Amino acid sequence: MQIRHFRVVTPIWDHLHGRSPSAPSGDVDVIWHDPLCADAVEDRKREAALRAAEPEIAWSVKNQARMHGRNNDQPYSSATDAMRYWPETATAVAVRRVGKDNCEVAAPLGLGDLMNLVLRPTSRFASEKRYIYEERVRSKGWLNSWPLLREETN
C-alpha cells in the first residue's frame, strides 16, 4: 500500500481566523515515497485517478523519492523526511487517513508555527534560497488571505 499525505495548512489557517474552510485554491498536494516507483508517469496516473474522483480540485501528486534531485538534496528516506527540506516551517505539515475514522499527522518541523500563525523560512530558505521563499509568500498571497499571519525570519 502506498502512503499518501495531504498538506493541510489552509484549512487550519481558516479555522484560526474564525472562518469556515475555504475551497481548495491552487494545488492540493499529495506526497508519497516509493523509491522503486519513482517515475513521474506514476504521479500523473495518480493525479488522473484523483481528478476523476474530484475533478474540481487541482491535484498535484509527487513521489518524494525523486524530488531530492530537483532540489539538489541528498535522497529523502520518506515523505516526512522530504518535508524537512520544504521552504516554510508552517507548510511542512501533512495528514493521512489511517483506518476509517483516524488520521495521522506528519510535522517534522513541529506544529508551533502553523498553530501560532507564524510564517518563516526553513534554515536553507532563510539564506541561500531566500528568494524562493519570498516569491512563494508573494505569489501565494498568504499574508493577504490570512491577515493574522505574521512573518518571522529567524
Rank of each mutant, 00 (worst) to 15 (best):
V98L: 12
V105Q: 06
D73R: 09
R70G: 08
D101H: 05
A82S: 12
C103L: 09
P108S: 00
E88D: 15
P75F: 04
Q74W: 11
R66M: 00
S77L: 08
K100N: 15
H68G: 03
P87F: 05
R66L: 00
T91G: 03
C103S: 04
A79G: 13
G69N: 13
T80A: 10
R97M: 12
W86S: 05
A90D: 06
T89C: 14
D73Y: 06
Y76C: 00
R70S: 07
R97G: 10
M67H: 07
G99K: 01
Y85K: 12
G99N: 01
Q74V: 13
V95I: 12
A92E: 10
W86Q: 02
W86K: 02
A107R: 00
A94L: 03
D81R: 00
R70M: 14
Y76H: 01
V93R: 04
D81C: 01
P87G: 05
N102E: 14
A106D: 12
A106G: 09
D73G: 02
Y76I: 06
A65G: 08
A65D: 01
T91N: 01
G69Y: 14
A82V: 13
A82Y: 03
D73H: 10
A65R: 07
N102I: 10
G69F: 14
T80Y: 09
A65C: 01
T91E: 03
R66K: 02
R70A: 15
A107P: 03
A106C: 06
V93C: 07
P87N: 08
R84P: 03
V95C: 05
G69Q: 12
A106E: 08
N71Q: 03
D81A: 00
A82D: 05
G99S: 01
Q74I: 15
A106S: 06
K100H: 14
V93L: 06
M83A: 02
S77P: 00
W86E: 04
R70C: 11
Q74C: 11
N102H: 15
R97A: 13
V95A: 11
A65F: 04
S78F: 11
Y76N: 00
Q74H: 13
Y76V: 00
G69H: 15
A107V: 04
S78M: 02
A107C: 03
